[in-house]
Write a protein that binds this DNA or RNA. Structure first.
Lengths: 166, 166
DNA sequence: TTGGAAAGTCAACAACGCTGACATAAAATC
DNA sequence: GATTTTATGTCAGCGTTGTTGACTTTCCAA
């Protein structure tokens, strides 16, 4: 019998520490794979994972403000600013002053930025697609359910907002 | 209808970029939650996530060698050494010279080390348990399948070794 | 006996988190 | 209109954790 990491099975789960530890290890090992492909591309440039994350969410919600991005990424403005500055300097991201509220900066990917984002995303999606195909649709649904249950409430809110559109 | 992120559904999966990007975001947000609880404990001490990871795997395979741990964690020996040195100095980890091969160092948690490992692990397992319960056994099985499919082959090997026992 | 593997150490560096302090502009409020 | 709050940007400094490169010691095995 294959190790599903789950015993019991009806309504109640008997979750042993061993099963939970297996899940923890799965998350650890899988996350390494998850970031491996874009990391390989990034290391050749002077960019890191933080640049990728910023570009990902700017692509997802074009025109989002710095404050929103800050909250989504869960880092300090100083940390994000270092990343954003280089992306803007290099012409990958454009920062437009808000029309209604001129304090706000709305972020957009330039054509060049969108190109890099696509390249990084494609590398990452390739692995994700392969994993989804290998595991099958039912597994994918479960995967998403567990991940969502694992999030902090604030992150889950961001996750939902992302779905519903900016 | 709830957004399962999966359309199609029988044998073939129609995976849109949107669905794959949703999966990527789920991994990102979930991983933040995954590490949040132990991180909170660690930040009060002078330890970081790297110390936690090392202790986790030493606990799982008591007596594993430095080289093995290096390979499991996927970092350089210099990076691991810095972490291990502090753990040994602080009496959390014991390093024993190999009996057969005296070049090898076999790593063990001390009683004190096991205590901290348990505290960190319990924090992390608490969230994992809640997520598993919320999602249900079928979802958990799928979660594990997708994660395993996402790993690099070498990581998958380590993951399997962990299951079968050292 | 010699080659190479395992381990440890030193130096230097980079990415990316953090805090604290401070400046500016503009919106919001009193 | 004056004051407060918000959004943003910037500077300095620091900590963790990753990297490379170079070098040494120990010791198994061919």
């Amino acid at each position: 019998m294959a190790d599903t990491g789950v015993q019991g099975g009806e309504a109640l789960l008997f979750l042993t520490d061993e099963q939970l530890r297996r899940g923890i290890e799965a998350m650890f090992f899988a996350y390494r794979g998850f970031t491996a492909d874009p990391d390989k591309i990034l290391e050749q440039m002077s960019y890191g994972r933080a640049h990728h994350r910023a570009m990902h969410f700017i692509n997802r919600q074009p025109g989002l403000t710095v404050t929103t991005l800050l909250s989504v990424l869960g880092v300090t403005k100083q940390s994000l600013n270092r990343v954003l500055r280089t992306l803007i300097e290099d012409g990958l991201v454009e920062s437009r002053v808000g029309r209604k509220d001129k304090r706000e900066r709305h972020l957009f990917l330039t054509a060049k930025g969108a190109d890099l984002e696509r390249e990084l995303s494609e590398a990452q999606r390739g692995r994700m697609r392969a994993a989804y195909r290998a595991a099958g649709p039912q597994a994918v649904a479960g995967f998403r359910q567990v991940l969502e249950a694992m999030m902090d409430p604030e992150m889950r809110r961001h996750f939902a907002t992302m779905r519903d559109g900016a």
